[in-house]
Computed example of a mutant assay.
Amino acid sequence: MAFSVEERGRPYTTDYQVYFKNAEGKYISPFHDIPMYADEAQNVFHAVIEVPRWTNAKMEIATKERLNPVKQDTKNANLRYVANVFPHKGYIWNYGAIPQTWEDPNHKDEATGFTGDNDPIDICDIGEKVCSRGQVIRVKVLGTLALVDEGEMDWKVIVINTEDPQAHEFNDIEDVRRLKPGYLEATRDWFKRYKVPDGKPENEFAFNGEFQNRDFAIKTVRNTHSLWRALITKQSDGGDLNCINTTVTDSPFRISAAEADAIVKSASPLGPAEPVPSSVDKWFFYEK
C-alpha cells in the first residue's frame, strides 16, 4: 500500500501543513485512514514519520484539524523546536506514530494506572535510514518505554523499519541492547531530560524506566487501536479531536473525496521555507 504527501504553506511557519494521499491519489487522514497493520499475520505495522532523525522541529499529526495534516507544534504562538541536551542533537531516531491508535485521556492504563495523552501512540524507529517528513514505513515492534509525561501515559514504542538491512536480526528489545549497545540507555536519557531546558523537571517512567518486551508492546499497541475504534465510531467522546476520515466505512465522521479535496485546496500553496532560528543549534549542558 503506497502513500504520498502534499506540502502546503511555508515550512517553519504556522501555516505549513503536510497532507496525505493514498495510492489512488485521494486525500486521507494519517490518523484515521492509514491502516494500523501493514501485515497483520506478521505483526508488521505502519508508522507515520513526523520528525526525521537529527532534526529539531517538533512536527506532529495535528489531531484537532481536518484531515489531520502533519504540522509544527506551537506553544504560546511560537513554533516549537526540541532542545539539544548534550550529547544529543535533535531527535535521535525517526520519530512518529502508529495510525489508528489513540491513548484515551479518559482511560486508565491497566499496567501503569495512568490515563492517556490524547494522541496516537508514538514510535521511535531505530533503523539506519534517515526518513523524510510524512513518510509512511512498515515496522517491526521490538518493545516499549513507559514515559509518564506530566502525569499522562505516553508510550514510546521501539520499532525498526522492515527495509533496514539488519531488520531480520531484530525481533525483541534485547536484540536492540545486544546489537546497538547504548541506544536504549540514550533513549531513556533523552526522554528523561529533553524538557529540562524549558524549565520543566525531568520526566518519569513507569516500571522504573525498564523497557518492556515485544509481546508487551504489541499488546499495548492493540489496546490503543481498540480505543481508537471506539473514538472513530463515536462510542467514545474525543472532545475537540477531529475524526474526519475518507475510508472508515462504519464511521459517522466519514466524508467524500470531494469534501477532502476542498479542505486541502483551501490551504495556502507551498512556498519557500523560513530560516530555522540559529538558537535551535544551541547545546544545553547540566549534570545528571
Rank of each mutant, 00 (worst) to 15 (best):
R188K: 15
L184Q: 07
D149G: 07
A111Q: 08
K180V: 14
E150K: 11
R188A: 10
L145Q: 11
K180G: 06
I173C: 06
P181E: 07
A111S: 15
E152L: 07
E163M: 06
C131H: 14
R138S: 15
D189P: 01
V176C: 02
G199I: 01
K195E: 09
V141K: 05
E174T: 13
I160N: 03
K140G: 02
N171T: 06
V130P: 03
W190A: 08
N171K: 10
Y183M: 14
E174Y: 13
R193V: 13
A111E: 07
R177G: 12
L147F: 02
G199A: 02
Y183K: 15
C131P: 00
T144F: 02
V141A: 13
P165S: 08
G134R: 15
I160G: 05
P181A: 12
K129G: 04
P197V: 13
E163L: 09
I126Y: 00
E128I: 13
V157T: 10
F114R: 13
R177H: 09
I160K: 11
E150S: 08
M153P: 00
N118W: 03
K180M: 14
D154M: 05
L147S: 04
F191C: 05
V148I: 15
E202K: 12
L145W: 04
V136P: 01
V141I: 15
V157W: 10
K180W: 04
A111K: 14
C124Q: 12
P197M: 04
K200V: 05
E163K: 14
R178D: 01
K129Y: 03
R138H: 12
V157I: 15
G151S: 11
V130C: 11
I173V: 04
E185R: 14
K129E: 14
F114Y: 15
D175W: 00
Q135Y: 08
E150Y: 13
M153C: 04
E174F: 09
N171C: 00
K156M: 01
A186K: 15
E185Q: 13
G199F: 04
R178V: 04
E202V: 05
T112P: 03
I160W: 02
S132R: 15
I126L: 13
S132N: 12
I173T: 03
Y183W: 12
A167E: 00
R138N: 14
V196R: 03
D189I: 00
R138T: 08
V196L: 03
F114H: 15
V148N: 09
V157Y: 09
I123E: 03
E185V: 08
E128N: 14
G116E: 05
W155P: 03
K180Q: 13
F170E: 00
E185A: 08
I158Q: 03
W190H: 01
Y183L: 15
L145T: 10
T144N: 04
D125P: 02
K192E: 12
E185I: 06
G182M: 05
A186Q: 11
V139A: 06
D175C: 00
A146Q: 12
H168G: 06
A186F: 07
I158D: 01
N161W: 08
P181C: 09
P165V: 11
G127T: 07
D122L: 06
